[in-house]
Every structure is written in C-alpha cells, then in structure tokens.
Write a protein that binds this DNA or RNA. Structure first.
Lengths: 216, 216
DNA sequence: GTTGAAATTAGTACGAA
DNA sequence: TTCGTACTAATTTCAAC
C-alpha cells in the first residue's frame, strides 16, 4: 500500500515522467525538507523556528509538501542488526524484455526486499534484501528469484558495512538560488539544449539492449 | 555528526562488530519498530494503541529503543526530483588496500553521496549519489573520486527508476517467535555451528584479495 | 505494566498587515 | 502570502494503583 514510489525523473518502464509539477518549491520549502530529513519527528512549531517562518506558515507549507508528494513519508531508520536482520545483500538482476510487470508483481511478494531500482549498465535492476542469515539469501536467490520467468540472471554481493546514510536534500553549493547553482556546477561540457538536465530521459537498459539484439 | 551508522553485524574495516547488545528486543519492541518505520511521525499514544500496550509502556520502550540505538534516527523520505536532485547514480568503487580511512574521510566531504556500503564481489564499495544533472555525476567521478589516491577504479550506472523502498523490519514468517522463524527458514544446508548466522563475520573484499596477491 | 488526571504542547481558525 | 493571536484538541508527563 505504500511500496510504490515516484519516478526518478526518468522513464522507468518506457514512459517519461510527467513534467508538470504541482508545487513550485522555493528555498523555504527546501529548507523545510532539509530539516525534516534530519529530524522527521520535529514539531511544526520547532520547524518553523529553525526555518525562520511563522507557525501558521510552517503548517501550510508542511501540509502542501505532504499533499504534493515532495514528502513521500516519514520513517524511522532502524538498526537492522538489532532487529534480527543482520544480513544485507545486493542482488543484481537481469530481466527479460517485456516482463517487467511480472517482475514487479513478484517483488511485491517478497517482504525481505527493502529497495529496488532499475539501472543502466550490465544489469537491469538492483535489489537490496535484509534477512536474518546468509542461508536466507541463498534461498531467496535460488528458490524465489530463479523461479521467476522474468529473471534471466542474477549476481549477488553481500554488504559488509554501511558506512554512510545521509539525509541530504540541498546541494551544498546551492546557497538559496537554484538556477545559479545549476549553472555553476555545469562543467561546460555538453549543454543538452534547452532540456533541463534533471529531467533528462534515459533509455532503459532492457530497452536499449532490445534495440541491439533480436533474440531473447 | 550523524553520518556514521552502525556496523551491519559484520566486520567492515577488518574488526568484527561488537557482540554485546545493550537491549534485548522482544516482539513488542519489534512491532514498535515496524509501526514506526511506516509512520515515523505517529504519536506515542497512537503507537501504543496500534501495538496493544499502555501509553506509559510505549513511552518507556520508545525511549529505550532510541537510547539503545535500535532506532537510529527519524527522517522524511523526499521526492528528490521535486527537490531538484533528479539524477541518481550508483558508483562502484575499488579501493586500494590500507587506504580505507582516507576513503571514508573523503566521503564525508561529498554531500551528494547519500549512501555508501562496503561490499563483497568485484568492487569494494558502492556509493549512491543524488545530483541535479548528469554532468554533475561526471564531474563527481572524474574530478573528485578519481583524485582520491585510495580510489583505484570506479564503475558508474544510473538509476532510471526506484521501484520500491519498503520500511521493513520483521520477517513475514516470523509470527512473533524469533527462534522458531530462524529455524524455519534455514534450508538445512550449512549450520555454521553455534555462531548465530546473523552475526557471521565476512572477510572484506579488500582483505580477501590482499591474501591472494602481493602487489597493489 | 496499567490507568487516569494535570500540565504542556500541538493543531486550527481568523483577522490584520 | 505571511504573521500573530486566541481557541480547541491532542499529547506527554506524572501520579497512584
């Protein structure tokens, strides 16, 4: 019920993400997001103070960000070792063309999958799983993933240590002006015409390869 | 100040994670974590009701989980596209032996890095970055990462779509009894003696390879 | 570990700038 | 829009059980 998250600004299944954004975010909005990411349980009153706006304004913007989807959800970060899920693994999956829908449906049936992203490169997707022991990873890969027709191949690595997980929203060099920052960090290379780079559309790995080979 | 997160139950830099756990988590604790992961802003009163305990008890346990570190932090999940960071990439890094400390120090200086994990397999670490445009990824890899002596090689892929991000804590087959569940999902393969599988120690990729070759 | 009441804080509504 | 204030509802704290 809260597993599907919004597009990453690029077309995942082949459709480009919608361009029309509901809410135009200003610097105050971004500051609010920044604060909320490092303390998701802060009261709106304290939030207002930290951002430097009135309480009423903070409530309005807070609700707007929530309604707009800029804030997707509030969550607690858990120490999975303490919770009994001490093993984390990444499974890189190659998915058969035209079977993405099936793959996603199967994903929904695997609670141990915490994160899944479609990627470019050698594989098509990366999934992160958290389980209680190494055997469960093996079971997961050989008995569950391997049995999905959509899955062509997998490659598994273990996560030995999670060094960093940062609640980061604002680029550090963006001192409040988004356009200035954007042009400042552009290394004068390829300008991509008028398309905002952040809204560029990539061709999916599966899609791209489909154009290269006939079989599958 | 809040970037370093706890070990994943395995030795990251070569040192095994500490075994002594402060708080012994029972099923009620786990249920609390479960609820808090899907709604980090729920009031403790409502939390108590959902878990089926009294408010005072909920407050006690809530505070204990926080103090113990089982709850690392509360955070808001942001739609990065709306926040102006529409590009997400994964950079797989091969790190030179004995230079992990330097690598970690450099990571701390890169705000666009949202997540970094040490992995087994072909590469030594995976970092996830969020930036406003594709050019920033290129800049990041070629100008920043490549200049770190600790970094031997990198491989970059883009994330086209984030399909799933689930706030998952309890294994679905763990109906409340952890030991029953653990034995239930063990596929009768290798039992690892008396060492709890969740506390197994892996040899780091760098470490492992160090034993295989002399040069570097 | 639970319940119930006081103290505090959060959320809402509304007029003024 | 944003702010300030007053009002209402809810939460947290603290006590006794």
């Amino acid at each position: 019920m809260m597993s599907e998250i919004s597009r990453n600004g690029v077309g995942g299944g082949g459709q480009a993400g919608r361009i029309g954004i509901g809410l135009e975010l200003d610097d105050v909005h971004l500051k609010i997001l920044e604060v909320l990411r490092e303390n998701g349980r802060i009261s709106v009153a304290a939030l207002a103070e930290r951002v430097g706006i009135s309480r009423a304004n903070a409530y309005t913007r807070f609700e707007a960000l929530r309604a707009d989807g800029a804030i997707k959800r509030f969550t607690a970060e858990i120490d999975h070792v303490r919770a009994g899920l001490g093993i984390t693994a990444l499974i890189f999956v190659t998915v058969r063309q035209q079977m993405w829908k099936q793959f996603r449906a199967e994903l929904a049936r695997m609670p141990e999958v915490e994160y899944c992203a479609i990627t470019t490169g050698q594989h098509d997707a990366m999934i992160q799983v958290r389980v209680s022991d190494v055997a469960a990873v093996h079971t997961m890969v050989t008995e569950r993933l391997a049995n999905i027709p959509a899955v062509k191949a997998t490659e598994t690595v273990f996560i030995l240590d999670e060094v960093l997980r940062r609640p980061y929203v604002l680029p550090s060099d963006r001192g409040g002006d988004r356009d200035r920052a954007r042009s400042a960090r552009r290394p004068a290379q390829e300008t991509q015409g008028d398309v905002p780079l952040g809204k560029m559309r990539f061709v999916g790995a599966a899609e791209g390869r489909a154009a290269l080979r006939k079989d599958d």
